[in-house]
Design a protein around this nucleic acid. Structure first.
Lengths: 232, 232
DNA sequence: CGATGCTTTGAATCTCGTCAAGATGTGTGG
DNA sequence: CCACACATCTTGACGAGATTCAAAGCATCG
């Protein structure tokens, strides 16, 4: 986890091919760098609190985090997992309608929202990038609505593995290293930890996956996993 | 339903306080009118097909419609209900990741997406309006994720009634006239028609609502309905 | 009026949640 | 290096809630 706290490598990310910085001219990158602040957090900390003023937005540099909503009754729903390169906090209401919380040690650039918006008015590239990010978020959220409304537990798991395969940096079909706990997966998929465990056990039993440790998933029968995930 | 097909009243809507046209100067309204085409559909028709090229966007003038996704396995999830003044089709991918289908007779303005985008580049007001619409859609979709992931059947219905109360034009706590079938409600809430029926029956039995006809809901105990809806 | 489609109700089944116990793994201090 | 405590994860038994299948009510419309 020391890597996550290494500031010298973090700055390199301004050149990376991440959605916010993609294809921007150096001038824009410089101005983004000027307005940004690098925040470093330990695992399990709030990056921003649900219902707090939504004046800041975040670009994850290293580590993993969740976007979560907790109701007055104490029920928790994870709206998304965010990984390096991902952008979070692009709410347009005055207050965050969700919280962002680190799963691992995390480093992230923090931008004042009004400054980022102001710069995006002058930079067509930046504005496009922000729009694309919003579009992706909406598309992913539609997928999740379908998942929660229509799929069974083991189907949700299959969808989840394929989703992680796409979004989690470094994930390969033979080796997906999950940075989140069973509770996090459960709160993302609208299940309980017990049901997640049982569904994983079932997928193992049926030979679709192998899981040497709880945090490691290896897909053995991709066709069957895809079919159960029912990607529309 | 003849009202829905009355073209003379439909045009008035360009002056209405609907999200897309809100606070626009007359010049912009005129250009919007020029590029638009009024479409009139009977109940149960596709306004646009899932997976078809997403070249058009729609502004509902009269009637009700659903935004739905149907998987390869034939399962259907309704992503949203849309009502007069609502805007639909703002997908940014090349193909619609959902279909739009009329519930009642519907009239709607159809805009070529590229023209609307081009005009929004010149009209700050229009651009803001579009952005606000997208923000609202995302916020509503987050609510639905929470609903589907965390709530029980009768809680989902309470949330649904309050949601309709806010969004359905003309709805009042004492009289919500639902334009959709039990099947549509079920596909929106991730339930079956039978469970919707039973949950409505339970809410009636418990004195929270009255329902003289299946399409008419009257909220009797707003506090309890709110509490069950668990608006976060 | 009968026919059709939508809604409701009933009974059996199944999936998932709950509660409880046991297994596994990790980190700490002896 | 081992032993113990604490977390997390897994498994089992049971029950609640939702689905499924079937049949019966209730409208609307020829």
């Amino acid at each position: 986890m020391l890597q996550a706290l290494d500031l010298s490598t973090a700055y390199v990310d301004f050149d990376n091919d991440c959605p916010l910085f993609h294809d921007l001219p150096q001038a824009d990158l410089n101005r983004l760098a000027e307005m940004s602040r690098l925040r470093v957090l330990r695992a399990g900390q709030n990056i921003c609190e649900q219902s707090s003023p939504s004046g800041r937005v975040f670009n994850i540099v290293s580590g993993s985090a969740v976007i979560e909503r907790i109701s007055s009754a104490g029920r928790r729903q994870i709206l998304a997992f965010v990984f390096p390169g991902d952008f979070a906090g692009l709410s347009n209401s005055a207050y965050f309608e969700y919280g962002i919380r680190s799963l691992t040690d995390v480093s992230a650039y923090e931008f004042p929202r009004h400054k980022l918006v102001a710069l995006s008015e002058q930079s067509a590239g930046l504005k496009d990038n922000i729009k694309n990010i919003r579009d992706l978020v909406l598309a992913l959220t539609f997928d999740q609505v379908f998942l929660l409304g229509q799929k069974r537990a083991h189907e949700r798991l299959c969808f989840f593995f394929l989703h992680m395969l796409e979004r989690l940096p470094g994930a390969r079909p033979e080796s997906i290293k999950l940075p989140m706990s069973r509770q996090d997966i459960a709160d993302y998929l609208g299940l309980t930890t017990e049901t997640v465990s049982r569904s994983v056990a079932k997928l193992k039993r049926d030979g679709l996956i192998v899981s040497p440790t709880p945090q490691t998933i290896s897909i053995r029968d991709m066709d069957s996993v895809r079919e159960l995930a029912d990607i529309s």
